[in-house]
Design a protein around this nucleic acid. Structure first.
Lengths: 414, 414
DNA sequence: AATTCTTTTTAAAATTTTTAAAAAGATTTT
DNA sequence: AAAATCTTTTTAAAAATTTTAAAAAGAATT
């Protein structure tokens, strides 16, 4: 005979749900979002609050329709604890993931599931106007099968020197006289958050990916450049001004090659898809035999595709770049002594091609003791890391940050 | 007419002082130790506790003879707050600072003042036996003009791969079958703490030196190698296994030079006192004119001394090394985006000789935005940073860590 | 099947914080 | 210069949260 422990409202509309609870109890929501199912003890551990208080919060959240009991967890020899979960369709997050040439948008529910198709947009980010991007976003919101009022916030993650605090990207989508976040938020009337793409990817990998629960993680975003997202002590590490993790531009080569940043000898000049593509063209001009020859104009996607098919030249191009990434990584490991390193980002679909030369470089350049307890992973999030991480960034901001934005928006409408 | 606010016991012997209070109220003690004079509001801010609670703790500490009122602080227009300070002679810390060739020992009071002469010991750390070191320490304790029972703890800071948690140095002073800390603690019956020298220097600079109160600081220990202590988010950063900050051995040169660590091309091979000394000998063999020629066997101290006197060759040697340090620092800054960088350690007495070439390298190798808000300092602690930082490490460990050690020692005597 | 051991949950006591009021002193106004 | 106003600290009372202890529920052992 099952006992009814607490009355659970299964009809979401009946419960008077209130976004204020998301803010007030953000720590508990956060724990449940990242772990799907937890007991009161688990939540108490994660939020650092006592069990009696945690149980009080949970019953409040149940009353408001945010949380539901989910049976019992196992016990190694004692009373079985009640499981708790978030109810998925209470609210949603709109995650927008951008790179140099495209953006993806999707709506994510409170169980971290995609509830719309992933929309794709193509452009050259260097030339994209904020107003044009806004039309993409507005049309997505128009067409999505979710009520706009149920969206907690929009998280835009993108490359460049992003000032998360002030909502500005110093490299792209600049809006004269206004911050990018203000510009978007004013038009769509939903809280908007801006962050760096590699930071999002790192958070995605550390919460839902191969590095889940590792407290010190370095996540490489193998793509047009070589991005780096750092999780230190279980928290996103941003440095003094939010610009930490500029891995792509660490000066380590004496090659005289001019980098996109204006300096010479950056890691990016030998180790990124930019370098790989350039080396491919160079090699083909010199008569290299390769299946890449079938393309009119070779780009990075072609090289990845042909490497997967087994084209030796393509594999060699990636391997060379990977060795150089390994050189940079050796430095990073000496400085940060991480618990895990993750290869993620667009180019990590051929992660195993990258891995061997990276390991080779690490064997050559790392003090064995420095690397002994560091685990290496290839992402298994299939290029969704940035979208997933973007949604997670919203969850990270559920407390005061969200409250602030909501206050601003309420003032506007009033 | 002055009012007597709280009865202050000025006779220390009268108050029944209890080391337990140091543990129980370690946060308050810590704040006062680092800041000398604080108001209740300041302490409340620093400990994160409320003002009523803070005042309760302070009155308790006053009753026990640890804290005294020190007049009033200024107010910008309101009631003047009471100042509080630690009473200096309640307890003491024994700080022992080691490098490759020597050790210094001193007793520090609760106001961070040296209350004994600094004792010096010379040796070759690579050959030094733990037992020999212990005799030095025991004779120091024997002769110091402070009661042994008034010493809260001994902090030993030294180079090498230090496992602070377990009290082991994997590089030096290994004791078979026992940890180094156990070995010392068993004999002297005082809690012993072990840490890395560069960590101590960094803490010294961030609490009492040029980088006081900066929350993200990279402190370079310019010495036999190039040590690095990192303060991240106002906390000592140690990485996953405590080995973070291995700056000396980041692989950045293609010079083929074998490093002390067994690898090739480490920063140390071009940028440390090891490299400088080796380059000096090389240059002199090739007939370089220099005042260094007056020494039978040139060592690093000579080069520093002659550089101060203006010997061009010595200055040039240091400048070349400094430029290479700058190259490494450029990488570090791109990754960590610190608020401040400090040049400290033995060789920083000629800090201004180092500074110019470092700045030169940074101008060449850093993205301007990465360096815009980073301040550069030369230590003003006159080689006492490690001793001062060692004492500060004791204060950092006042809470649970000290309680643990005291429990172990009490068991032994019982 | 009864007892013992574990673990979670509830209840009561203790601690700590928050809020509000009072006290002390500086600044401005009359 | 005295009175009134404004600031800031300190004290007091109320509210929130944690700690400790007890009770409840279930698994493992005797």
């Amino acid at each position: 005979m099952k006992k009814c422990l607490i009355y659970v409202d299964t009809n979401n509309k009946m419960a008077e749900r209130n976004k204020i609870s998301l803010i007030q109890y953000s720590d508990t929501i956060k724990s449940l979002y990242y772990n799907k199912v937890l007991t009161s003890t688990d939540i108490s551990d994660q939020t650092g609050k006592s069990i009696p208080y945690t149980i009080k919060v949970l019953s409040e959240l149940i009353k408001e329709g945010y949380v539901a009991e989910k049976g019992f967890a196992n016990s190694s020899g004692g009373r079985k604890p009640i499981n708790y979960s978030l109810i998925p369709n209470t609210h949603y997050i709109l995650s927008v993931a951008m790179d140099q040439f495209s953006a993806q948008a999707v709506v994510v529910d409170m169980n971290n599931n995609f509830v719309t198709k992933v929309a794709h947009y193509s452009f050259d980010l260097g030339k994209l106007k904020a107003a044009t991007f806004l039309t993409y976003l507005e049309s997505f919101i128009q067409e999505m099968p979710i009520a706009k009022t149920d969206i907690i916030g929009v998280v835009l993650t993108m490359p460049g020197f992003v000032d998360t605090e002030n909502g500005i990207n110093h490299s792209f989508l600049e809006v004269p006289g206004q911050t990018l976040v203000e510009f978007i938020q004013d038009r769509i009337s939903i809280p908007v958050f801006l962050d760096n793409n590699s930071t999002a990817i790192a958070l995605g990998e550390q919460k839902f990916g191969v590095a889940a629960h590792v407290k010190n993680v370095m996540v490489l975003n193998l793509g047009w450049g070589i991005g780096l997202g750092m999780i230190v002590d279980d928290k996103i590490f941003r440095g003094n001004n939010g610009f930490a993790g500029e891995f792509s531009h660490i000066p380590i080569f004496n090659n005289g090659k001019l980098c996109t940043c204006g300096k010479r000898g950056c890691l990016e000049t030998e180790a990124s898809l930019i370098a790989i593509t350039s080396n491919a063209k160079e090699g083909m001009k010199n008569g290299q035999i390769t299946s890449l020859s079938s393309y009119a104009e070779v780009n990075a996607d072609h090289i990845i595709a042909e490497a997967i098919k087994g084209d030796l030249f393509s594999v060699k191009l990636i391997s060379e770049a990977a060795y150089h990434v390994g050189q940079g990584l050796a430095i990073l490991i000496h400085l940060m002594n991480p618990g895990a390193v993750v290869l993620s980002g667009k180019a990590s679909v051929v992660g195993n091609i990258w891995m061997a030369p990276i390991q080779q470089a690490l064997n050559e350049h790392c003090i064995p003791r420095m690397i002994k307890n560091t685990n290496f992973f290839i992402s298994d999030l299939n290029n969704d890391a940035q979208l997933i991480g973007g949604a997670a960034l919203m969850v990270e901001n559920l407390g005061e940050k969200l409250a602030e934005k909501m206050k601003i928006l309420n003032k506007m409408t009033a």
